[in-house]
Simulated scan of single mutants.
Amino acid sequence: MQVQAKRVRAETTRRFLLEAAAHLFDERGYAGTSISDISARSGRTSGAIYFHYASKENLALAVVEAHFAAWPKLIDQYRSAGLPALERLIGLSFAVARAFRDDVVIRAGSRLWAERKSIDVTLPRPFVGWIETVTELLEEAHREDEFAIGVTPEVAAQGLVSAFFGLHTVSDALEGRRRIEDGLHDLWLLLLPALQTDPDPASLLARVREREEDAAI
């Protein structure tokens, strides 16, 4: 019992420190954040931070790993939703957009990866998992006869992931991702006519948004 309690306390402390660091990494970047800053933000000593993470590099790595660890559970929700594949893909895209907007660990992990050349540690490789996930959903849409003939799922997935994360970069730079969902809606209106067998992007987006609103009630 005592061992388990200590383990829980240690994990709680690690998460607390990670989130404190994430706020600073998101606001100031890697180079602009020091262990002393994290100590002041968290109210814990520098010694406690080094005990749990050993270095600023390891703490940055932990934030990036937490960023990547957030996605599998979210992806699984949309893989098993029992809906047409394109609806699941669009729903997933909005869920990811909200996570980037609202979750400081997600935002910090993204910024740290962009600053990876200044961090002396090997970070996880991005985008590959997203390309695979989008390809799988587009292949399902193809089997459901919802996906346009002549469009290759693998090629379309590469383009969609590039467009999606490009939108995030622009939205972050211009308005701190506050209007990311509006931008994503407009992006889908632009892309869906090339992806759907019988293009009707407005109706498809309306169904997705209505379902999300009902789920939020």
Rank of each mutant, 00 (worst) to 15 (best):
G91H: 05
D103W: 10
T169V: 12
A157D: 06
S118K: 14
R88E: 04
N58H: 02
A70D: 03
E65Y: 00
A81E: 05
E115R: 01
G166N: 15
F147K: 06
A62L: 07
K56M: 03
F164C: 11
F94Y: 14
V96M: 12
E132A: 09
E87P: 05
E154P: 08
L59R: 04
G109T: 02
I106N: 00
T122R: 15
G159K: 02
A85F: 11
E139I: 09
T122D: 15
L61S: 06
A156E: 03
L167S: 06
E136Y: 00
A48F: 02
I90E: 00
F51G: 06
L123F: 14
A66E: 07
E136P: 00
K56C: 04
Q158H: 01
L112K: 12
G82L: 02
N58P: 10
G109I: 03
S162T: 13
E154R: 13
A141P: 07
I49Y: 00
R116F: 00
H142Y: 12
W71N: 12
D102C: 03
S80R: 15
S162H: 06
R107Q: 14
G150V: 04
V151C: 10
G91V: 09
K56W: 07
L138N: 04
D145V: 06
Y78T: 10
V134M: 00
D145I: 06
K73N: 08
A108Y: 10
A54F: 14
E144L: 09
E154A: 15
R143S: 10
A141T: 08
D102S: 14
W113K: 04
W113Q: 02
F165K: 06
V63E: 07
F165C: 03
K117V: 07
A81V: 14
T169I: 05
I106C: 01
T133F: 15
H168D: 10
E87L: 14
W113S: 01
L59Q: 03
P84S: 11
I131P: 00
V121R: 06
V63W: 02
F68W: 05
L160Y: 10
P84F: 06
N58S: 14
R143M: 12
D103E: 11
E87M: 12
F147M: 02
S80D: 14
E87G: 13
S110F: 11
E154V: 10
A62Y: 08
R107K: 13
T169D: 14
A54G: 14
D102I: 12
T152Q: 08
E87A: 07
V63Y: 03
S55I: 01
R88S: 09
A157Y: 12
E144N: 02
V105E: 02
L86T: 13
K56G: 14
L137H: 01
A62D: 03
I149W: 13
E136T: 07
L138R: 05
A97E: 05
S93W: 03
A156S: 11
I90Q: 04
Y78G: 00
G82N: 08
A62W: 03
G150Y: 09
T169K: 15
